[in-house]
Design a protein around this nucleic acid. Structure first.
Lengths: 130, 130
DNA sequence: ATGCCGCCTGGAGTGCACTCCAGCGCAAGC
DNA sequence: GCTTGCGCTGGAGTGCACTCCAGGCGGCAT
């Protein structure tokens, strides 16, 4: 069974060492195994869970909700319905986020175009320069 | 020339009164005009600038960069090139944000599907219930 | 043997973007 | 004439998610 040192997990997941420790402290990560010297050794499972965390975090899920999700996962298979509900709810929020972002991006692009037009107008009337 | 009371601007822009005052304090909003009693009266221009601010903020631009943009706007037409550069740079970031969000959403949706499959499997083997 | 590296701990500090508060002023409605 | 509502100020406080720090440990390369 492969294990990962903290450094390797940092590399793999993109979370900082401090963040990994923080996540363990608050219970977003289950207590990580240790070697004889007391140093953390992450399992494959820890790393894949961190992949999920990264997904949820990067799509704007607050830590409190990820904690709730983590709890469901720990409680076993009978919570799968709840997990689906939680993720579907989040999925809807992500959908809305994307839609909002696209719409706002449109406005920004229109502003850019507006500025470009203004610039062109100005360049066509050099004699009116201040 | 129409003016807006603070309450109306809150209504229009969705920013809280405190946020409007905060934006003025830090210079994201130019000093807002006052009536005889010292109460703020926002111009049409203020409101439309706030619309731009909302766009930029909601697409993740930090306040420090919005401040920089505000400065360019105040410096007059000769900064239009810089404004375009700033907005195009931001537009690229928004693009990347959307792409990342879509990709992560895909992963979440696959996870949902995975859970649904697990649930279905489980339901098809009721005799193995614990 | 002596650095240095990677990692350990508990706890304090940071940065961002607000948000709240006490205490006040003015104006309109009952 | 007094309450209610809206707004004012300066300054303090909040919530989130980290991030940093001092002081220490164990292994290994020079």
């Amino acid at each position: 069974m492969a294990v990962y040192t903290p450094g390797q997990v940092v590399e793999e997941t993109g979370f900082s060492l401090d963040t990994l420790r923080y996540y363990e402290r608050i219970g977003l990560l289950e207590p990580v195994g240790r070697n004889a010297a007391g140093q953390r050794r992450f399992t494959e499972e820890d790393v894949s869970w961190l992949g999920m965390v990264r997904c949820l975090r990067d799509t704007g899920m607050p830590i409190s909700e990820m904690l709730r999700f983590a709890q469901l996962v720990r409680q076993g298979e009978h919570t799968i319905g709840d997990r689906i509900a939680l993720l579907e709810e989040h999925d809807r929020k992500v959908e809305a986020q994307i839609a909002d972002l696209c719409q706002k991006q449109g406005a920004i692009q229109r502003k850019i175009q507006y500025y470009k037009d203004v610039r062109t107008m100005r360049d066509m009337l050099p004699e009116q320069a201040s």
